[in-house]
Amino acid sequence: MTLREFMVQRQPALCERWLDLLLADYGEETAANWRRERDPFANPIGHTFTTEAPRLVEAVSGDGKFDTVAAAALEAIIKIRSVQELAPSRAIAFVYMLRDVIRGELGTELARGAHATALATVDRRIERLALLAFDVYVRCREQVFRLRQDELKRSVASLLRRWHGSELPEPASEEVVHLSPPPNHAVRR
């Protein structure tokens, strides 16, 4: 079997391990809650993590197509973590942890340098994902600050309109509503 086939076959186990690491940031009790509750509206974070993790595993084990699905999956997770009081490094560390997860889960299969070339490819994809994670994180944070400005402007909008007439500048977020980069802006190595 190829490394890709192993990763596809063992994807649930890979995701479980990865989720353990990701949820560890939130303490034992919260991790248990977020794993237990299946309703996506009662538990949006647990649901997002469990839905998006397989998409990312698929992206790094896949045939090299690093598409918008991976970018959207990454964004869904990082957007949440960008407003959770985690240091930037910690907010995106879970991407790097995927390397340990793969080596931990597929230790036997990878023993004695087996699949070294394929593993190097997977590692490179994880690095690309990490770079993309950095972009997404910064965009989310920039949006938080922009939202603060927009809100301030809206809070005195009727005054501003009286001063400016119909020339009132629109809030910036009107223009910047989509965080996901278009595919041709994806990180290139």
Partner: peptide, 14 residues
């Protein structure tokens, strides 16, 4: 009540 608060659901701080 534990997992019903929006701040807990969105942040995870016990």
């Amino acid at each position: 009540c534990a997992d019903k608060c929006h701040f807990y659901i969105g942040g995870g701080d016990p």
